[in-house]
Simulated scan of single mutants.
Amino acid sequence: MPTPQEKQWEIYTPAEAEIVEKKSRFIASFATVHSEEEALAFIQQKKKEHYSARHNCSAYIVGAMDEVKRFSDDGEPSGTAGRPMMDVLEGANLHNVVAVVTRYFGGVLLGTGGLVRAYSSATAEGVKACTLIEKTSGTKLSITTDYNGYGKIEYLLREQEIMVLDTQYDVGVTIHCVVEDHQRDVETKITNLTAGTAKCQWGEWMSYGIVDGKVVYL
Rank of each mutant, 00 (worst) to 15 (best):
N96L: 00
T174K: 12
T3R: 10
I153D: 04
T188F: 03
A31H: 12
R158D: 15
D170F: 08
I190C: 02
T136L: 15
T136H: 11
Q160E: 15
L165I: 14
V68L: 05
L157R: 00
V68H: 09
D74Q: 04
W205Y: 09
V173L: 14
E180R: 13
H176N: 14
M1G: 14
V108P: 09
E204Y: 06
P14G: 08
V178H: 03
H34N: 04
A122L: 01
D181Y: 00
V97C: 10
G111M: 09
V173A: 07
R117V: 02
V116Y: 01
S29K: 04
E134I: 02
V97D: 10
W205D: 15
G63D: 10
Q8G: 04
T32P: 09
H55T: 08
R117T: 14
V178F: 02
N56G: 05
V88I: 13
T102V: 15
A99I: 11
E125F: 05
E161T: 13
M86D: 03
L193W: 03
K135W: 03
D185Q: 13
G203R: 13
V97N: 09
T3Q: 13
R103I: 01
R25S: 05
D166Y: 07
G149N: 13
R54I: 00
V101K: 06
K199C: 08
E159Q: 12
I133N: 03
A28H: 12
V97H: 10
S24N: 00
Y60I: 05
L115N: 01
A64L: 14
K47T: 12
D146C: 05
G75R: 02
G75W: 03
F105K: 04
A28K: 03
Q8M: 14
E161M: 08
I175H: 12
T32K: 06
E18M: 14
V216M: 10
S207Y: 12
C130S: 10
P14L: 04
H95C: 10
T188H: 00
H50V: 01
H176G: 09
V33D: 06
E159N: 07
V108E: 13
E76H: 04
A198I: 00
F26E: 04
D73T: 08
W205T: 15
D74A: 08
T112H: 06
S24D: 00
G91Q: 06
N148P: 00
W202I: 03
K7I: 02
W205G: 08
F30Q: 06
Q8V: 15
E10C: 12
C57V: 01
V100H: 05
I190D: 11
W202V: 07
F71E: 01
K214I: 05
S137F: 12
L89H: 13
I43A: 10
V179G: 06
L110I: 08
G138Y: 02
A124E: 14
G151R: 10
T112L: 05
Y147N: 03
V62M: 04
V116F: 01
C177T: 15
S52H: 10
C200M: 15
D74G: 09
C200I: 12
D181S: 07
C130H: 08
A129Y: 01
H55L: 11
L94E: 13
Y104W: 07
A59E: 09
E67N: 11
E125I: 01
S29V: 00
R83M: 09
S78P: 05
G106Y: 05
Q201D: 14
D185H: 09
D212M: 03
E90V: 14
G63A: 02
G63F: 02
R25D: 06
G75D: 07
A41Y: 02
A39V: 04
T13P: 13
